[in-house]
Amino acid sequence: MISWLANPERFSRIFTPIRPYVGVAAALMFMWGLYLCFASPEDYQQGDTVRIMYMHVPAAWMAMAVYLIMGIASFFGLIWRHSLADVAAKAAAPIGAAFTALSLLTGSLWGRPMWGTWWEWDGRMTSVLVLFLFYIGYMALHAAIEDETRAAKSTAILAMIGLVNLPVIKFSVDWWNTLHQGASVVRADGPSIAPDMLWPLLVMALAFKLLFVWLWLLRIDTELMARRYRALRARLSFAEEGN
């Protein structure tokens, strides 16, 4: 199934027509989700600030999920040399970085009224910050290597070591956090979530997922077209010079 889809032309043929529907579905889910966000009751402790969570939590989930997707795509690209997998990994990186930045930003906005500080060096925020640095490193490496095949291989290796290392880094940051305990901050993981807050969260999470899929398909298709164009141009100039 994966090998069958790994043919770029076939992939474009199947997914290009589907893409607009995914986009429309994402938009609808966002409208519904945002409506639920504002229709849901205030939190008895957090007040209106709780509504930031409906953006923050799905963004943080996506930040991690996209890195996982990137790692898996890199694995396929490296082992089975599917060029489409390379393209998929490359296309996912900036989207993942954007979700990570969004989760850091909304976390900071939420932290200001709740914790009284824009940035709290707690384990979770620090890990997400390191994840953001991973995305930056990945994109920088891709940009720095001109040869496409090489760039794909090198970034795939980086993504996979990153994937193996992320739990270790997460653990070390948590360990560091307990070592430096003493911050008098109310932890974010409060009481279990009420149902009328769960619904907006789930709808927003689905909306974020659809948004990711739409952006991802769009970026993959753009990259495939750019590659086709480059190959065609090289072929033409080659034909003019030789033969």
Binding site: A140, A144, I169
Partner: peptide, 21 residues
Amino acid sequence: LSLGSRKGGVLIALLVLPFYV
């Protein structure tokens, strides 16, 4: 990983430092 790219030094630091955490 950064072999052959022209931004060697800074790129290495960017790639490597998160793993030094």
